[in-house]
Simulated scan of single mutants.
Amino acid sequence: MKKLIIPFILMCVLIISACSDSTKNQATEDASETITYQSENGPIEVPAHPERVVVLTGNAGDLISLGINIVGVDEWSMESPLFKDQLKDVTVVSDEQIEKIIELQPDLIIGASDNNNLDKLKKIAPTVIYTYNKVDYLTQHLEIGKAVNKEKEAQDWIDDFKKRANTVGNKIKEKIGENATVTVMESYDKDMGILGDSWGRGTEVLYQAMGMKMPEKVKEMTSKEGYYMISSEVLPDYVGDYLIVSKYNGQDNSYQNTDLYKEMPAVKNNHVIEVDGNTFLFNDSLTLDYQLNYFEEQFLK
Protein backbone atom coordinates (compact mmCIF):
# COMPACT_ATOMS: atom_id res chain seq x y z
CA MET A 1 0.00 0.00 0.00
CA LYS A 2 2.81 2.39 0.91
CA LYS A 3 4.50 1.69 -2.45
CA LEU A 4 1.35 2.89 -4.21
CA ILE A 5 1.05 6.07 -2.12
CA ILE A 6 4.60 7.31 -2.77
CA PRO A 7 4.32 7.45 -6.61
CA PHE A 8 0.92 9.15 -6.23
CA ILE A 9 2.43 11.85 -4.00
CA LEU A 10 5.30 12.37 -6.42
CA MET A 11 2.86 12.74 -9.30
CA CYS A 12 0.88 15.40 -7.37
CA VAL A 13 4.08 17.32 -6.64
CA LEU A 14 5.03 17.28 -10.32
CA ILE A 15 1.59 18.48 -11.37
CA ILE A 16 1.61 21.35 -8.83
CA SER A 17 5.13 22.32 -9.89
CA ALA A 18 4.13 22.33 -13.55
CA CYS A 19 1.07 24.49 -12.82
CA SER A 20 3.22 26.90 -10.81
CA ASP A 21 5.74 27.20 -13.64
CA SER A 22 2.91 27.77 -16.11
CA THR A 23 1.45 30.55 -13.95
CA LYS A 24 4.84 32.22 -13.64
CA ASN A 25 5.42 32.01 -17.38
CA GLN A 26 1.96 33.48 -18.06
CA ALA A 27 2.64 36.35 -15.63
CA THR A 28 5.95 37.04 -17.36
CA GLU A 29 4.28 37.02 -20.77
CA ASP A 30 1.52 39.36 -19.56
CA ALA A 31 4.07 41.77 -18.12
CA SER A 32 6.09 41.85 -21.35
CA GLU A 33 3.12 42.04 -23.72
CA THR A 34 2.69 45.38 -25.48
CA ILE A 35 0.17 47.16 -27.66
CA THR A 36 0.60 50.03 -30.08
CA TYR A 37 -1.19 53.18 -28.98
CA GLN A 38 -1.81 55.88 -31.56
CA SER A 39 -0.88 58.94 -29.50
CA GLU A 40 -1.16 62.55 -30.61
CA ASN A 41 2.54 62.35 -31.48
CA GLY A 42 2.34 59.10 -33.38
CA PRO A 43 2.38 55.37 -32.53
CA ILE A 44 4.01 54.27 -29.29
CA GLU A 45 4.53 50.83 -27.76
CA VAL A 46 2.98 50.66 -24.29
CA PRO A 47 2.36 47.78 -21.84
CA ALA A 48 -0.78 45.81 -22.60
CA HIS A 49 -1.32 45.46 -18.85
CA PRO A 50 0.42 48.41 -17.10
CA GLU A 51 1.10 47.73 -13.44
CA ARG A 52 3.07 50.77 -12.27
CA VAL A 53 1.91 54.06 -13.75
CA VAL A 54 3.20 57.56 -13.02
CA VAL A 55 0.70 60.35 -13.75
CA LEU A 56 1.96 63.90 -14.31
CA THR A 57 -1.36 65.35 -15.53
CA GLY A 58 -4.80 65.91 -14.02
CA ASN A 59 -6.05 62.55 -15.26
CA ALA A 60 -5.50 60.44 -12.16
CA GLY A 61 -9.26 59.99 -11.74
CA ASP A 62 -9.57 58.48 -15.21
CA LEU A 63 -6.94 55.87 -14.39
CA ILE A 64 -8.39 55.12 -10.96
CA SER A 65 -11.84 54.54 -12.46
CA LEU A 66 -10.30 52.13 -14.99
CA GLY A 67 -8.64 50.12 -12.23
CA ILE A 68 -5.06 51.11 -13.10
CA ASN A 69 -2.42 51.01 -10.36
CA ILE A 70 -0.78 54.41 -9.84
CA VAL A 71 2.61 54.62 -8.12
CA GLY A 72 3.37 58.32 -8.69
CA VAL A 73 1.09 61.32 -9.13
CA ASP A 74 1.24 65.10 -9.54
CA GLU A 75 0.71 67.40 -6.55
CA TRP A 76 -2.59 68.87 -7.78
CA SER A 77 -4.20 65.44 -8.14
CA MET A 78 -3.14 64.56 -4.62
CA GLU A 79 -5.07 67.62 -3.37
CA SER A 80 -8.41 66.28 -4.61
CA PRO A 81 -10.52 64.86 -1.76
CA LEU A 82 -12.11 62.50 -4.28
CA PHE A 83 -8.82 60.62 -4.75
CA LYS A 84 -7.73 60.61 -1.11
CA ASP A 85 -8.29 56.93 -0.38
CA GLN A 86 -7.04 55.62 -3.73
CA LEU A 87 -3.84 57.69 -3.61
CA LYS A 88 -3.03 57.40 0.09
CA ASP A 89 0.07 55.26 -0.52
CA VAL A 90 1.10 56.93 -3.78
CA THR A 91 4.23 59.09 -4.09
CA VAL A 92 3.91 62.73 -5.13
CA VAL A 93 6.26 63.54 -8.02
CA SER A 94 6.85 66.31 -10.53
CA ASP A 95 8.42 66.41 -13.98
CA GLU A 96 11.56 67.83 -12.35
CA GLN A 97 12.10 64.86 -10.04
CA ILE A 98 13.63 62.40 -12.49
CA GLU A 99 15.54 60.35 -9.92
CA LYS A 100 12.43 60.00 -7.78
CA ILE A 101 10.44 58.75 -10.77
CA ILE A 102 13.20 56.24 -11.65
CA GLU A 103 12.99 54.83 -8.11
CA LEU A 104 9.28 54.14 -8.64
CA GLN A 105 10.13 51.82 -11.56
CA PRO A 106 7.12 52.77 -13.69
CA ASP A 107 6.19 50.73 -16.74
CA LEU A 108 4.13 53.64 -18.14
CA ILE A 109 4.15 57.41 -17.71
CA ILE A 110 1.14 59.63 -18.51
CA GLY A 111 2.26 63.21 -19.04
CA ALA A 112 1.33 66.57 -20.53
CA SER A 113 2.78 68.09 -23.67
CA ASP A 114 4.11 71.01 -21.62
CA ASN A 115 5.89 68.82 -19.05
CA ASN A 116 9.59 69.45 -18.56
CA ASN A 117 12.20 66.73 -19.20
CA LEU A 118 10.08 64.72 -21.61
CA ASP A 119 13.20 63.26 -23.27
CA LYS A 120 14.41 61.98 -19.89
CA LEU A 121 10.99 60.62 -18.97
CA LYS A 122 10.80 58.64 -22.22
CA LYS A 123 14.05 56.89 -21.30
CA ILE A 124 12.52 55.68 -18.02
CA ALA A 125 9.33 54.15 -19.45
CA PRO A 126 6.96 54.54 -22.42
CA THR A 127 5.60 58.06 -22.04
CA VAL A 128 2.21 59.07 -23.43
CA ILE A 129 1.56 62.81 -23.47
CA TYR A 130 -1.62 64.81 -23.94
CA THR A 131 -2.26 68.45 -24.75
CA TYR A 132 -4.90 69.97 -22.51
CA ASN A 133 -8.16 70.60 -24.39
CA LYS A 134 -6.78 69.30 -27.69
CA VAL A 135 -9.73 66.90 -27.62
CA ASP A 136 -12.99 67.17 -25.69
CA TYR A 137 -13.26 65.80 -22.17
CA LEU A 138 -15.04 62.57 -23.14
CA THR A 139 -12.61 61.81 -25.95
CA GLN A 140 -9.79 62.40 -23.48
CA HIS A 141 -11.17 59.70 -21.20
CA LEU A 142 -11.48 57.34 -24.16
CA GLU A 143 -7.89 58.05 -25.23
CA ILE A 144 -6.59 57.25 -21.78
CA GLY A 145 -8.64 54.07 -21.89
CA LYS A 146 -6.97 53.12 -25.16
CA ALA A 147 -3.51 53.88 -23.75
CA VAL A 148 -4.00 51.42 -20.88
CA ASN A 149 -5.86 48.83 -22.97
CA LYS A 150 -9.22 49.60 -21.37
CA GLU A 151 -11.06 51.11 -24.32
CA LYS A 152 -14.31 49.18 -23.79
CA GLU A 153 -14.52 50.14 -20.13
CA ALA A 154 -13.89 53.79 -21.02
CA GLN A 155 -16.53 53.80 -23.75
CA ASP A 156 -19.08 52.12 -21.46
CA TRP A 157 -18.62 54.88 -18.88
CA ILE A 158 -18.94 57.59 -21.57
CA ASP A 159 -22.20 56.15 -22.89
CA ASP A 160 -23.65 55.88 -19.39
CA PHE A 161 -22.49 59.35 -18.33
CA LYS A 162 -24.04 61.03 -21.37
CA LYS A 163 -27.40 59.43 -20.64
CA ARG A 164 -27.32 60.37 -16.97
CA ALA A 165 -26.22 63.95 -17.66
CA ASN A 166 -28.92 64.44 -20.27
CA THR A 167 -31.60 63.24 -17.84
CA VAL A 168 -30.35 65.51 -15.04
CA GLY A 169 -29.99 68.47 -17.39
CA ASN A 170 -33.57 68.14 -18.57
CA LYS A 171 -34.83 68.02 -14.98
CA ILE A 172 -32.88 71.15 -14.05
CA LYS A 173 -33.98 73.11 -17.12
CA GLU A 174 -37.56 72.12 -16.46
CA LYS A 175 -37.25 73.70 -13.02
CA ILE A 176 -35.23 76.86 -13.74
CA GLY A 177 -36.24 77.45 -17.37
CA GLU A 178 -34.68 76.58 -20.72
CA ASN A 179 -33.17 80.05 -21.12
CA ALA A 180 -31.76 80.48 -17.63
CA THR A 181 -28.05 81.33 -17.76
CA VAL A 182 -25.28 80.05 -15.53
CA THR A 183 -21.87 81.64 -14.85
CA VAL A 184 -18.91 79.75 -13.41
CA MET A 185 -16.25 81.80 -11.67
CA GLU A 186 -13.19 81.11 -9.57
CA SER A 187 -11.23 83.22 -7.12
CA TYR A 188 -7.69 82.04 -6.41
CA ASP A 189 -5.10 84.09 -4.52
CA LYS A 190 -5.82 87.64 -5.71
CA ASP A 191 -7.06 86.61 -9.14
CA MET A 192 -10.64 86.20 -10.32
CA GLY A 193 -11.75 84.59 -13.53
CA ILE A 194 -14.85 83.49 -15.39
CA LEU A 195 -14.73 80.12 -17.12
CA GLY A 196 -15.84 78.83 -20.51
CA ASP A 197 -17.34 75.45 -21.34
CA SER A 198 -14.21 73.29 -21.01
CA TRP A 199 -12.06 74.44 -18.12
CA GLY A 200 -12.89 71.98 -15.36
CA ARG A 201 -14.69 73.28 -12.25
CA GLY A 202 -17.89 71.66 -13.51
CA THR A 203 -18.00 73.58 -16.80
CA GLU A 204 -18.05 70.47 -18.99
CA VAL A 205 -20.96 69.01 -17.03
CA LEU A 206 -22.99 72.22 -16.99
CA TYR A 207 -22.55 73.48 -20.53
CA GLN A 208 -21.67 70.43 -22.61
CA ALA A 209 -23.26 67.45 -20.88
CA MET A 210 -26.38 69.09 -19.43
CA GLY A 211 -26.79 71.81 -22.05
CA MET A 212 -27.03 74.77 -19.67
CA LYS A 213 -26.62 78.24 -21.17
CA MET A 214 -23.93 80.77 -20.33
CA PRO A 215 -24.33 84.55 -20.63
CA GLU A 216 -23.36 85.84 -24.07
CA LYS A 217 -20.66 88.07 -22.63
CA VAL A 218 -19.06 85.13 -20.86
CA LYS A 219 -19.20 83.09 -24.06
CA GLU A 220 -17.56 85.92 -25.99
CA MET A 221 -14.76 86.63 -23.55
CA THR A 222 -13.85 82.99 -22.88
CA SER A 223 -14.00 81.81 -26.50
CA LYS A 224 -10.26 82.22 -27.11
CA GLU A 225 -8.47 81.06 -23.96
CA GLY A 226 -11.25 79.10 -22.25
CA TYR A 227 -11.26 81.56 -19.34
CA TYR A 228 -11.11 85.33 -18.81
CA MET A 229 -9.55 87.19 -15.90
CA ILE A 230 -11.56 90.06 -14.41
CA SER A 231 -11.65 92.33 -11.38
CA SER A 232 -14.35 91.95 -8.75
CA GLU A 233 -15.71 95.38 -9.70
CA VAL A 234 -16.95 94.12 -13.08
CA LEU A 235 -18.15 90.70 -11.91
CA PRO A 236 -21.86 91.70 -12.13
CA ASP A 237 -21.41 92.27 -15.88
CA TYR A 238 -20.72 88.55 -16.36
CA VAL A 239 -23.03 86.87 -13.88
CA GLY A 240 -26.16 85.21 -15.26
CA ASP A 241 -29.27 83.95 -13.50
CA TYR A 242 -27.19 81.45 -11.55
CA LEU A 243 -23.62 81.66 -10.27
CA ILE A 244 -21.27 78.77 -9.54
CA VAL A 245 -18.41 79.89 -7.27
CA SER A 246 -15.31 77.71 -7.08
CA LYS A 247 -13.59 78.40 -3.75
CA TYR A 248 -10.39 77.25 -2.05
CA ASN A 249 -9.77 77.06 1.68
CA GLY A 250 -7.74 79.94 3.02
CA GLN A 251 -8.37 82.20 0.03
CA ASP A 252 -9.52 85.80 0.27
CA ASN A 253 -13.24 85.80 -0.47
CA SER A 254 -13.93 89.25 0.96
CA TYR A 255 -15.54 90.32 -2.32
CA GLN A 256 -18.58 88.31 -1.22
CA ASN A 257 -19.09 90.77 1.63
CA THR A 258 -19.33 93.82 -0.64
CA ASP A 259 -22.61 95.53 -1.57
CA LEU A 260 -21.67 95.10 -5.22
CA TYR A 261 -21.72 91.33 -4.82
CA LYS A 262 -24.75 91.18 -2.54
CA GLU A 263 -26.85 93.28 -4.94
CA MET A 264 -26.38 90.96 -7.92
CA PRO A 265 -29.72 89.31 -8.84
CA ALA A 266 -28.21 85.81 -8.64
CA VAL A 267 -27.12 86.49 -5.05
CA LYS A 268 -30.35 88.21 -4.00
CA ASN A 269 -32.37 85.33 -5.46
CA ASN A 270 -30.27 82.75 -3.62
CA HIS A 271 -29.05 81.33 -6.93
CA VAL A 272 -25.42 80.92 -5.87
CA ILE A 273 -23.90 77.43 -5.67
CA GLU A 274 -20.51 77.21 -3.99
CA VAL A 275 -18.15 74.32 -4.76
CA ASP A 276 -14.83 73.22 -3.33
CA GLY A 277 -12.08 74.21 -5.77
CA ASN A 278 -9.88 71.17 -5.15
CA THR A 279 -12.79 68.76 -5.54
CA PHE A 280 -14.10 70.40 -8.72
CA LEU A 281 -10.77 71.22 -10.38
CA PHE A 282 -10.51 68.37 -12.89
CA ASN A 283 -12.67 66.87 -15.64
CA ASP A 284 -11.76 63.18 -15.25
CA SER A 285 -14.47 60.54 -15.01
CA LEU A 286 -14.51 60.29 -11.20
CA THR A 287 -14.71 64.06 -10.81
CA LEU A 288 -17.37 64.38 -13.50
CA ASP A 289 -19.56 61.82 -11.75
CA TYR A 290 -19.24 63.76 -8.51
CA GLN A 291 -19.97 67.09 -10.20
CA LEU A 292 -23.08 65.73 -11.91
CA ASN A 293 -24.49 64.38 -8.65
CA TYR A 294 -23.64 67.62 -6.83
CA PHE A 295 -25.34 69.85 -9.39
CA GLU A 296 -28.41 67.62 -9.43
CA GLU A 297 -28.68 67.96 -5.66
CA GLN A 298 -28.05 71.71 -5.57
CA PHE A 299 -30.25 72.79 -8.47
CA LEU A 300 -33.17 70.53 -7.60
CA LYS A 301 -33.19 70.82 -3.81
Rank of each mutant, 00 (worst) to 15 (best):
S198V: 01
K190A: 09
Y228L: 07
A209T: 04
D197E: 13
M221W: 08
Y207H: 05
A209S: 14
D191K: 15
G196L: 01
T222P: 03
M221P: 01
E225F: 08
E216I: 04
D189E: 14
M192H: 02
S223I: 07
L206P: 00
S231R: 10
E216C: 01
K224I: 07
K219R: 14
M221E: 15
M214D: 04
L206I: 08
M214E: 10
G211Y: 05
G211E: 11
M221S: 13
L206A: 10
G193A: 13
M210T: 08
K213P: 05
R201L: 02
M210A: 06
G200M: 04
I194F: 01
Y227C: 05
T222M: 06
E225Y: 07
Y228S: 11
G196K: 02
G202H: 00
G211M: 12
M221K: 15
M210E: 07
M221T: 11
K219Q: 14
G193F: 00
A209W: 00
K217V: 05
S198K: 13
K190N: 12
K190T: 13
A209R: 04
P215V: 06
M212P: 05
G193N: 02
K217M: 09
V218F: 07
I230L: 13
M214R: 09
K224S: 12
E220D: 14
I230F: 10
M210P: 05
V218D: 01
M221H: 15
S198L: 00
M221R: 11
G202R: 02
A209F: 06
D189G: 01
E220V: 03
S231A: 13
K213T: 12
M210V: 11
D189A: 08
M210L: 11
S187P: 00
P215G: 09
D197Q: 10
M229Y: 15
D197I: 03
V205I: 15
Y188N: 11
K219C: 03
Y207G: 02
T222V: 05
G200P: 03
K224L: 05
K224R: 12
G193W: 01
V205D: 04
G196V: 00
I194T: 04
K213W: 03
M212I: 10
R201W: 03
E216S: 15
D191E: 11
Y188S: 11
E204P: 01
E204W: 07
G202E: 07
Y188Q: 10
S231H: 07
K219M: 14
E216Y: 06
L206K: 06
R201P: 02
E220K: 15
V205Q: 09
W199Y: 13
G202S: 04
M229W: 14
K224Q: 14
W199M: 08
E225N: 14
W199F: 12
I230N: 08
K190L: 04
E204K: 06
Y188W: 09
S231F: 03
V205W: 03
I230S: 07
R201A: 00
K213H: 13
T222D: 08
I194W: 02
T222A: 09
Y207M: 02
V205N: 05
K190M: 05
W199C: 02
I230R: 09
G200R: 01
V218T: 14
K217T: 11
R201V: 00
S198R: 12
E220H: 07
E220I: 02
